[in-house]
Nucleic acid binder design. Structure first.
Lengths: 347, 347
DNA sequence: AATCGCTGTTGAATCGATTGACTTCGGGAG
DNA sequence: CTCCCGAAGTCAATCGATTCAACAGCGATT
């Protein structure tokens, strides 16, 4: 059987519509754009012709003239991670509501791939770019990109750059989490996951140290383990921590994913999270409530981030000269079972 | 502080490049497309001019002439669900490797929204459309869309339509799952989740009945519960099943999500999945291995689905007249703890 | 010297819309 | 009877590329 799926219909253009409605191309265009200079009967004739011929508007042709593509690029590291999936979903629905389309690209956190993706976005003439920059992205690069279209960053720590951005309140979230552990009697609290190059991690680490200091607890760098943001990363980290001469009694993790790894590692070591050792994550991904024990975590509302990013972008497009806006979304500590017990041997 | 994010740079076009390189627009264009008719020294001058001016190619302008947008539309119900997120990720990376961009739209399984999204995709002049059709999508609609661009369906059960498609082997997966339960001694096996309008569910239901028949087990319609594909749906279904005079001892669920609900419902009823009652899911979402007990399920490789869909599309674009190809991806039964025990009272 | 064939380059039409300037027409004011 | 005006349309240039047909040089052939 030979496919009949090849498009055979030859393109119907505005010219054809105009001819069918016995008006000029100009009139047809104005009619479709609801221009008041076109009389109602004429507009109707045009609309009927559109219907009869099965005309499909060509946005690119229009965009060539109007210099608007009604397209926003979203560049993230990876869609398959549930956090980013939610974020994408939020951005897409927000944009769709305003008649914009979302072009999606992923970078795998690779600078080379990122610059190629930005490049194709610019070639596609996006009206704006929402970007979660790969590690080590130079400010200069972003500044260059901003000459072509507005940029909204999904990270709030590039204050040197006059770009709108949205992000979580990492500082407050971290403080709450660490204080929660301190209230439960913990004194040796590990910080697990992420790499130093990540600005977000740096922010959380700073806040972690600061919170310890306020509570007169010495900061011990040996308790801070860098690792990939994966279950494996958490698993390996807890393994290393448990071998210390005075191991920690709790871990604050860079991400829920790391926290899951920590919990698996605890189980493998014969310990039970929530009972023998306290664990806190970050993100509140859906699995967090399903784990056994359920995971105490800092909620990050990724969908809200996506929605806000889209809104910032739409705002910027509508009013290019507004001052820069940086949205820091409040974070909430969701207390569940993984931190339920008091520390075993309070000193 | 006023934003300097407004793009101020006025557009550099091919004409400017041509002038700078002291050649015609035509030559510049040919040079950039590596046309062998242009001499090497000339090509170099053009490339230098591109560099010097910071020229950005405009794909839409080119597409207007060439009638190719190098853009593929992906329309699904919802990105936030992990299955679809994986699928999207697979499709995106495959397309990016071939220099295509992915435009993403979601329908929330709503026919109206679906047709609006398809419409904007066509207006955007996509070179192809990958579609997971909303429930009750008419074949006629899809046939119409195929007149504009090739269509790849993410469901393999529209045989009346000459469209490429990819999908799971629901039949085989279901057979394996049901046989696994039968081997464990189960005779009353429930089928939980999904609605009759879903073609995929119908397929699995048929296979479920067929497998029972081969093993001389009577089909009992009371054991088949339709429900939303959510945890709640599974929870309510098991509740209803357990109230029967002769309740089932096992459930084969339409989706992992339903299976989680069933397990929660069992726990609420004082039963333990894997010990007192067997549960099988479908999809093998990441949580499946994390649950307690871990969930036996049919693995569905969503990323592979996305990759295959993208490949089918690229193939169709390259060779429009090839015969229709339908890819059925094999499914694997992943046996875990939720089906570990033999049936309690074999008869 | 005229012709031929190459190579490398260019002019101009084209893709499908938008839009500022201009035309046409009928009616009312002067 | 002119003139002006507004309403409804139309003309033609334009956006930024691609591409076909034509053409200028130039050395080789007859």
């Amino acid at each position: 059987m030979t496919s009949s799926s090849r498009p055979r219909r030859q393109k119907v253009t505005l010219k054809h519509v105009a001819d069918a409605a016995k008006v000029s191309k100009a009139t047809a265009s104005l009619a479709l754009n609801n221009n008041p200079r076109i009389s109602e009967p004429t507009r109707q004739r045009v609309l009927e012709a559109v219907e009869a011929l099965g005309y499909v508007y060509n946005r690119h042709a229009a965009g060539l003239r109007t210099q608007r593509s009604y397209t926003i690029g979203l560049i993230i590291k990876d869609v398959s991670n549930p956090f980013n999936a939610e974020l994408t979903s939020g951005a897409e629905s927000q944009l769709a509501d305003h008649d914009y389309s979302l072009v999606l690209a992923t970078t795998d956190d690779d600078l080379g791939k990122q610059s190629r993706m930005v490049q194709t976005m610019l070639e596609r003439d996006v009206d704006g770019l929402i970007l979660s920059p790969a590690a080590h992205t130079a400010i200069e690069s972003m500044r260059r990109w901003m000459q072509f279209c507005p940029l909204v960053l999904l990270i709030p720590y590039y204050s040197e750059l006059a770009a709108d951005c949205v992000g979580m309140d990492d500082e407050q979230g971290t403080r709450r989490a660490v204080e929660h552990l301190i209230e439960r009697g913990h004194r040796r609290i590990a910080f697990v996951g992420g790499f130093a190059a990540q600005a977000t991690r740096q922010k959380r680490l700073d806040s972690y140290r600061d919170t310890l200091r306020r509570h007169s607890i010495d900061y011990d760098p040996a308790l801070c383990i860098a690792s990939p943001v994966t279950r494996r990363g958490g698993y390996d980290a807890i393994h290393q921590l448990l071998r210390m001469s005075t191991p920690p009694s709790a871990a604050y993790c860079y991400s829920d994913v790391n926290a899951f790894g920590v919990m698996l590692g605890l189980r493998a070591a014969g310990l039970e999270a929530g009972k023998d050792f306290a664990v806190i994550g970050f993100d509140d991904v859906p699995e967090a409530s399903l784990w056994h024990p359920s995971l105490t975590t800092v909620s990050a509302d990724p969908r809200g981030l996506g929605e806000n990013a889209a809104q910032l972008m739409l705002r910027r497009i509508a009013e290019p000269d507004l001052p820069v806006k940086r949205i820091i979304m409040p974070s909430r500590l969701i207390v569940r079972d993984s931190t339920v017990a008091q520390v075993k041997a309070p000193r």
